[in-house]
Design a protein around this nucleic acid. Structure first.
Lengths: 226, 226
DNA sequence: GCCGGCAATCGGGGTTTCTCCGAAAGGCCC
DNA sequence: GGGCCTTTCGGAGAAACCCCGATTGCCGGC
């Protein structure tokens, strides 16, 4: 847009983080038709991303929330610290505002879902590169709803009360991971995960481990209907 | 679609079904470098797929399991009926045994996960086009475990190898009951229930308690599809 | 600036469940 | 009778669960 043709050599550098190779290929393909953008690197895990990104000097990072071996939320915080000038566009499978809200609060600049078309993704990328924020319209309208009605409303009455970490752990429980596995994935002590399980149970009014598991399973698989 | 002009080599026709546009772009990109393959259409829902596929006459369909508005499992059954000559490659996010098993039993020819590299996907596609089956190695080895005693019914679902009591216990696990609760409900010792849990795991090829819980939940709630 | 609250992280210690191993009684089939 | 499977349980060690803390750090209020 504002870039004159005489400066065509300076391309915007994009870095890709997603644990699904096919999604990285898709993003690469999508960006390959954009003349003033180039992919300056990619990673399939948070660790790999943190290793490569400082050297790659990207102007923007497109990243998935649910990485295999660690937490996408942690990656956002780390990237904000390590590479504060890079814009962060989260490209998630979930259209839940639980995630969008937390992601933006943690310093990301945009949030779109994988259901969205590729044109939307490019548009979002352009906007955040201009210093703006972007969320997909459906998520945006729901974000606005929550501003008017605090506390008891809409989707889940008490899910909102969970902290970022707690929600993350709930997600993993629902994905079938055990306490030990979650601890390793988040690089935390087993005791810490046990604490989170208790906190979640307390906040959601659950009384036993099986109840927690049941709740988590249903919550993770709930969005398959609409 | 223009008619193939003087093109002597008839290309293999691939149809894509996935509700994430970016994944379809990735698959398209992946196949674009394969000289004897071409994408003959795509769809983002089961309904759309069933409308377009008969006309598209694909040799193979790559489809996601978890579609937005319906079940990928049902789509497999429908496609087998509507278009029996097309090979079906399921491209899923889950590496859980539960899904792979059901998918293959319902007539799909291959099962790979999105964590797999794109070369693996192309290789799987080649194999199933030759009339073979393909599952990712990790899933394959565990599928073989469930066939420990071949017996009479080779293609029988492993769930049918469970005894009455075992099935009963599986049902209760999937309903969210804990070991102690099940024992009391059946007026049996806790140790007996523990034995059943182990037997079920052995027969289904599961390796941990959380996997068993996951399987049980999915099995109990499987009727929620369609 | 101080204080209360909450999020994030971990530990201790007791209870329960999981996991692997074994075993006894009964049934079925050849 | 000799396997083979089912149903039922026990022992012992590891893991997870549950109820108590504790510390650090951040953020908002007064």
């Amino acid at each position: 847009m504002a870039t004159p043709k005489t400066q065509a050599a300076k391309k915007t550098r994009i870095f890709l983080v997603d644990d699904h190779p096919i999604v990285r290929r898709g993003l690469q393909f999508m960006l390959s038709v954009e003349p003033h953008m180039t992919v300056c690197g990619e990673a399939e895990s948070a660790r790999e991303a943190l290793e490569k990104i400082p050297a790659a000097q990207p102007d923007a990072v497109i990243l998935d929330l649910t990485l295999k071996a660690s937490s996408g939320l942690d990656l956002i915080k780390d990237l904000r610290r390590v590479c504060p000038k890079a814009k962060l566009l989260v490209f998630s499978m979930h259209d839940e505002l639980y995630f969008a809200e937390r992601v933006l609060r943690n310093g990301a600049h945009g949030y779109i879902t994988k259901e969205e078309g590729t044109e939307k993704a490019v548009e979002a990328l352009r906007l955040i590169l201009q210093g703006k924020k972007y969320v997909s319209p459906t998520v945006a309208s729901r974000l606005l709803d929550t501003l008017g009605a605090p506390g008891s409303d809409s989707a889940g009455p008490s899910i909102e009360r969970l902290s970022d970490r707690e929600l993350e752990v709930l997600q993993m429980i629902g994905s079938g991971l055990g306490t030990r596995a979650i601890a390793e994935k988040l690089h935390l002590s087993v005791k810490t995960i046990e604490s989170y399980r208790e906190h979640i149970k307390a906040k959601l009014g659950l009384t036993s481990a099986t109840e927690l598991t049941s709740y988590a399973f249903n919550w993770v698989n709930r969005s398959r209907k609409s």
